[in-house]
Nucleic acid binder design. Structure first.
Length: 913
RNA sequence: GGGCGCGUAGCUCAGCGGUAGAGCACUACGUUGACAUCGUAGGGGUCACUGGUUCGAUCCCAGUCGCGCCCA
């Protein structure tokens, strides 16, 4: 065996072996009639590359899957990719541009889609290979794509189903419009970004000679004391370019300044349109002048006001967010436009903004301008400011299907871990808004609705069926496609074969657990709940494990623009997949972000090496597993101890994983293997492996068992190195991935007597090492150990472990003596007293200090406990158990103190002599 | 504005009513036939602050101060 595990060479071979042996297939290795365990992968975008968040998310899933598979469950990890409408269309369009090929519009829909499919075939599978590098044990034979024929059919069927039940409707309303992609997007795809901007105040002249008194001076109580007569209203806006679409000015119904003006009109500058002053409580008297311009076609709040007050909505922009005025009948109607305004036609919205402000200044209706910060909605993909835009779109009336999704979590049929995410889930669902599901894109599931020339709609699974419904009328299909999340919302039933009643659907649905990031609870998790419950009347999963975000080592969100992205594949290349996985797992504390630093990965790479070398040790010493080995029948205390430790480790892994405490599982395994097995068991066990000893055979078998048990319980976390070592040890006949998880219970393999002995031996060795180190005894020097006094029952222990103590503490001999010799250093372990004769090398003063320190530490602790035990309130109110434990501890410390004091006295005597 | 979370060793984080822990980093020593990607020993903390509950608070409660995120 090499001294290191060569991850880069072994990983791909090991993965291939797993695939060829079919160990990842649904149900592989399952016990007969086993319970099923199924996880659906959150489908990565087909355009995507594996980022660290995927690596984390899929490591967690793989641990759960491998753990269950080894425990004999009938396991399915269902993989797949999402067609990711906007993202993919964007990638392919860029590709066309880069290669200077005809753009999407020139190609036309059909040819463009062909190109997307081509692209998908060539470069779409990258992320699958990357998941394999991570070790993800998905059943790739069942890989699904949200645009597959079967999945597509299922999506259309659901659309038709929901349409027919009246849960899907078409409506003309304001949507969030992304002017870059020229499509509607849903509320969730909008992110609010704060930006510094300006607030402009405009004067809109009152018509028909109306005037009002506007306060200009106030007394101390804020009461107006002087007024001026105004023949205009001042309105404020951050978006001057939309003023051409103004159809009203609103004032608060209780605002006495303006009440006589309600229903009068102002003349909209530039457009020359008469617009009505309306009373609506949306206008806040305390803000600005209390009068607010209303642009129903370009602002969500204004839209509501317009609906309430009967104002028309005039769209003054194109889909690209440039001004549309010249051939805009709605705009021109009722206008007495000034020539300048038509020159704005076709200008980009920001250019139009500058021009309008400039015109306002020139024409004298600019009242003022102020700087302020405000939040501007942006498209999460395009990063451009979205426009509220008036269009016809398809909506899911989510309110009608939301209740079962709320109930399922309320009554615990689906549980969310950690529970704090439940309230986020409820809060969103209880305030659900209609879901805009149509997108003006080409790549996606085209909406299965046809229109005849009169505009009647026919919703059907195919053109033929629509034609039948239409009775031969001329039809054209709705050009829009569905929101990507509409189809991924059907991921659970869609991947398992619905609407066919497949065996997989029967066996694996509802699925066991969904592992996902909190950032897509709304996008995806909540919608899957709603849609599965609406379509098949059942929950999609029993549990939802919500994990946090992976951030950089300073806690910043990783992003390309910040340049702080850690590429998991680079980490895997450098440290191996096992190290990357173990790092992520060890940091996966429930409900907390992880800050990833590379040094941590390097640390776990060292753990992989440690495991590798422990196995190498076993090989050197011919420690081979014995078929008839019974862990509970070993005789030597050391072997009995490690068997018990191993059982405890297995037990705590199971407990931790069952409650999704992945970090506890990983850290427990790390401590067990490195600090128990390697630091102590293998070191103490070395003397027992000498060929001439009777105990050697048992110890070799125990070492083999311990190593192999460790490989098994580490396998879900570090599948590659464990599988490789398993193969090296077992000759490759059976695979670790399908090896049965140990069932032995904790109690049967525990031996408290052996545990106490070994722990005492460890303390003794540590104490000797500590003394040696502090007294600067050369590391290579062998020194004698004098035994002065032993606690009851320890004599045989010292005898049994004599050689181990000698070796690990680098002693020349262990002798019983009656009195400590001149120049020797006494020290204590629990209640036993020893000394090290170090006359020529020791630092007397330093050693005395060391003992005094220990004495003070003990004395301080004892005094704390004494105070507590002297407190009547404590004695009467604390639980008896706690009182008793405190007393025992105090007594034990007192005994130790006595021994230390004895050591000090002896030492003083020696110094005085 | 509403909600959630977080302030514990130099750094990244566990813990969570009764002994304050890990990894990394740091210091010293060291190649003993598994491992220097290692071993041994060691230093390092008013558990953000202020009150309260309790026999007892890093832990529970309230407030303050800092930081982050989500929603409007």
């Amino acid at each position: 065996m090499e001294p290191y595990f060569d991850a880069s060479r072994a990983e791909q071979r090991l993965y291939r072996n797993w695939e060829e042996a079919g160990v990842f297939l649904a149900g592989a290795g399952a016990d007969h009639e086993a319970e099923s365990f199924c996880i659906l992968i959150p489908p990565p975008n087909v355009t995507g590359a594996l980022h660290i968040g995927h690596a984390f998310n899929n490591t967690i899933q793989d641990i759960l899957i491998r753990w269950h598979r080894m425990r004999g469950y009938n396991t399915l990890w269902q993989p797949g990719q999402d067609h990711a409408g906007i993202a993919t269309q964007m990638v392919v369009e860029r590709e066309l541009e880069r290669r200077q090929e005809p753009a999407r519009q020139e190609l036309g829909r059909e040819a463009f889609l062909e190109r997307v499919w081509q692209w998908k075939e060539q470069s779409g599978g990258e992320i699958v290979n990357q998941l394999k590098r991570l070790g993800a044990s998905c059943d790739w034979s069942r890989d699904r794509f949200t645009m597959d024929k079967g999945f597509h059919d299922a999506v259309l069927k659901v659309f038709i189903n929901l349409y027919e039940q009246g849960y899907i409707y078409r409506g003309k309303r304001l949507v969030n419009w992304d002017p870059h992609f020229e499509t509607a997007i849903s509320d969730l795809e909008v992110e609010q970004l704060e930006d510094k901007g300006r607030m402009w105040r405009f004067r809109y002249p009152l018509e028909n000679g109306e005037t009002y008194q506007h306060p200009v001076e106030y007394d101390r109580d804020g009461q107006p004391t002087a007024y001026e007569t105004r023949d205009y209203l001042v309105v404020a806006t951050t978006r001057p370019e939309t003023m051409l679409g103004d159809t009203g000015v609103a004032v608060h119904p209780d605002d006495t300044r303006y009440s006589h003006l309600v229903s009068r009109t102002v003349r909209l500058p530039l457009a020359g349109r008469s617009i009505r002053i309306v009373a609506d409580s949306y206008a806040d008297p305390a803000k600005g002048t209390g009068a607010v311009k209303i642009t129903p076609a370009h602002d969500f709040n204004d839209w509501e006001v317009g609906q309430r007050c009967g104002l028309s909505a005039i769209n003054v922009m194109t889909a690209k967010a440039s001004m549309r005025l010249r051939d805009n009948a709605a705009f021109l109607e009722g206008c007495d436009t000034e020539p300048e305004v038509l020159e704005l036609d076709g200008l980009d919205r920001y250019e139009a903004r500058r021009r309008i402000v400039e015109l306002a200044r020139q024409q004298g209706w600019l009242d003022g301008v102020s700087e302020e910060r405000h939040v501007v909605p942006h498209g999460d993909r395009s990063k451009v400011a979205v426009e509220p835009y008036l269009t016809d779109q398809w909506y899911v009336d989510a309110e009608q299907i939301v209740q079962p999704a709320i109930d399922a979590v309320r009554d615990g049929r689906t549980r969310i871990y950690p529970a704090q995410y439940e309230s986020i889930y409820f809060n969103w669902l209880e305030n659900i808004e209609p879901w805009c599901i149509s997108r003006q894109l080409w790549w996606g599931h085209q909406i299965p609705v046809w229109y005849d020339d009169e505009g009647n709609r026919y919703c059907a699974a195919s053109e033929e069926e629509a034609a039948k419904l239409a009775g031969g009328r001329n039809l054209r299909r709705d050009p829009d496609v569905l929101d990507t999340w509409f189809s991924s919302g059907l991921w659970p039933i869609g991947t398992l074969g619905w609407p066919e009643a497949t065996p997989e659907l029967e066996r694996y649905f509802p699925t066991s657990v969904l592992v996902t990031g909190f950032d897509i609870i709304f996008f995806w998790v909540a919608r899957m709940m709603m849609m599965q419950l609406a379509v098949v009347k059942d929950i999609p999963f029993h549990s939802i494990y919500v994990h946090a975000l992976v951030r950089d080592e300073h806690g910043k969100k990783m992003s390309k623009s910040l340049g702080n992205v850690i590429d998991p594949i680079e980490l895997i290349d450098k440290y191996g997949a096992d190290a990357v996985r173990f790092t992520l797992t060890s940091m996966a504390a429930l409900g907390r972000d992880l800050k990833l630093s590379e040094s941590r990965v390097a640390g776990y790479r060292n753990f992989v090496t440690k495991l590798w070398n422990a196995a190498r040790f076993a090989e050197f010493h011919n420690c081979e597993s014995q078929p008839d080995f019974e862990p509970d029948s070993v005789s030597h205390g050391l072997n009995r101890w490690i068997v018990g430790e191993t059982a405890r480790a297995r037990d705590s892994v199971d407990t931790a994983l069952a409650s999704y405490r992945f970090n506890d599982a990983a850290n427990g395994l790390y401590a067990y293997f490195w600090h128990k097995v390697c630091d102590w068991y293998l070191e103490l066990g070395k003397p027992l492996l000498a060929d001439n000893l009777e105990i050697a055979a048992e110890t070799r078998a125990t070492v083999a068992w311990v190593i192999e048990q460790s490989l098994i319980i580490l396998h879900p976390f570090m599948p590659f190195v464990t599988e490789e070592l398993w193969g090296l040890r077992k000759g490759g006949s059976d695979m670790l991935a399908l090896t049965r998880w140990p069932q032995y219970g904790g109690a049967k393999l525990q031996d408290p007597g052996a545990d106490a002995d070994v722990e005492w031996i460890i303390s003794l060795i540590e104490e000797i090492r500590s003394v040696r180190s502090e007294l600067r005894v050369p590391a290579g020097a062998r020194i004698p150990l004098h035994v002065l006094e032993l606690e009851e029952g320890r004599a045989s222990v010292v005898a049994d472990y004599r050689e181990m103590i000698t070796r690990l503490a680098r002693l020349s001999c262990i002798e019983e003596v009656k009195v400590a010799g001149r120049g020797s250093t006494p020290f204590s372990v629990a209640e036993s007293l020893f000394s090290l004769p170090l006359a020529d090398i020791m630092d007397l003063k330093g050693e005395l200090d060391r003992l005094e320190n220990k004495k003070h530490r003990l004395a301080r602790e004892i005094s704390k406990l004494d105070t507590r035990l002297g407190n009547q309130a404590f004695l009467s109110r604390a639980p008896q158990r706690v009182v008793e434990e405190t007393r025992q501890r105090r007594d034990k410390l007192r005994a130790e103190l006595a021994v230390v004091e004895q050591a000090i006295n002896r030492f003083r005597t020696l110094i005085d002599e």
